[in-house]
Amino acid sequence: MSEIHEVALKAAGYDYALRIYPAAEPNGSMLVWLHGGAFMFGTLDMPEADQVGRRLSAAGITVASVDYTLAPLDALDRLSPPDSDADFPSPEQLRAEADAAGPRARFPVASLQIVAAFDWAVDNAVRYGADPARVALGGASAGANLSAGAAMRLRDRATSLPSVLGLVYPSLHDGIVPANDELRALLRDVPPARIFTPEARAAINRNYLPDAGDPEGYAFPGGRNLVGLPPVLIVNAELDSLRASGEAFAAELATASVDVHVVRQRGAMHGYLNEVGHPAAERTLALLTDAVTQDYRER
């Protein structure tokens, strides 16, 4: 099998790339994977992207990690809380790291690119030892949102659907879903820099979708028509203000008669896939491996 390599694509008027992690010993499955980063940040080299590609390919799954076009940085100055801890990068640091990202664009560019990336994976699955009917789709945080929106586009197009959706600490609604008493109590001990406030979430979402116009629900699938989606794995971080969105989405999927498996990673905060070796990251990689490898058609 070939080594890790990149494939150049173009969709929605923008060039982008896939980094392909060929399976060491293919088990017939493939995953199109999307990193997070508030729609504005993230690279293929961050652990949330690279670790997933390396670990799942070692388990027999070819991974296509998508270097989708990022949104502009207009909301950046509103994201760092005034009392953030020393580990949280400043807006200046984040801006410097993001300067190399190239051209930027808002919704629907990344959403359309992910559909094209999924189509490429289906068309090329056989060359990587995968079944075109066993191509999964998933992501973390904003990447999970993008995955769910792309799955809705694919459903509405009525062609190939992902075999399964894997959504890790997702943000799926336009705004913060209110936390229950249990989650509010847990968040009191979380550093402010690790919490998404309603104000920060609004800044991120309006930066991605300025006019809040989302009639089909492709930008923010939460609360929309979810009937006909493929089976879904949702993995939430326990100490995450976005956990309520993942839990609400799981309930919405169940109401829509979509098979859903929802897991809470105890003691974990948002973004834990970027901490290599974190126990929650190890458990989540195992859950993703199992979900992508299984053939739900035979259940």
Score class of each variant (00 low, 15 high):
residue 81 P to C: 03
residue 82 P to N: 01
residue 87 D to M: 11
residue 90 S to T: 15
residue 90 S to W: 04
residue 95 R to A: 10
residue 101 A to T: 13
residue 101 A to V: 13
residue 103 P to F: 03
residue 106 R to M: 05
residue 108 P to W: 07
residue 108 P to N: 11
residue 108 P to G: 07
residue 109 V to S: 08
residue 111 S to F: 04
residue 112 L to R: 15
residue 113 Q to Y: 07
residue 114 I to G: 13
residue 116 A to F: 14
residue 116 A to W: 15
residue 118 F to K: 13
residue 118 F to G: 15
residue 121 A to E: 05
residue 122 V to T: 04
residue 124 N to Q: 12
residue 125 A to Q: 05
residue 131 D to A: 10
residue 133 A to W: 02
residue 133 A to G: 07
residue 134 R to N: 09
residue 135 V to F: 12
residue 135 V to K: 06
residue 136 A to E: 12
residue 137 L to Y: 07
residue 140 A to Q: 10
residue 140 A to R: 00
residue 140 A to Y: 07
residue 141 S to H: 02
residue 144 A to R: 00
residue 146 L to D: 11
residue 146 L to S: 11
residue 146 L to W: 05
residue 146 L to Y: 03
residue 147 S to T: 14
residue 149 G to C: 12
residue 150 A to L: 13
residue 150 A to Y: 04
residue 152 M to I: 11
residue 154 L to Y: 14
residue 155 R to H: 12
residue 158 A to P: 09
residue 163 S to W: 06
residue 164 V to N: 08
residue 165 L to S: 09
residue 165 L to Y: 02
residue 166 G to A: 12
residue 166 G to W: 03
residue 167 L to V: 01
residue 170 P to L: 00
residue 171 S to W: 02
residue 172 L to I: 00
residue 175 G to M: 04
residue 178 P to D: 04
residue 179 A to C: 05
residue 179 A to W: 00
residue 179 A to V: 02
residue 180 N to S: 03
residue 182 E to N: 07
residue 186 L to N: 00
residue 187 L to V: 01
residue 188 R to N: 13
residue 191 P to Q: 01
residue 192 P to N: 00
residue 198 P to W: 04
residue 198 P to F: 11
residue 199 E to N: 03
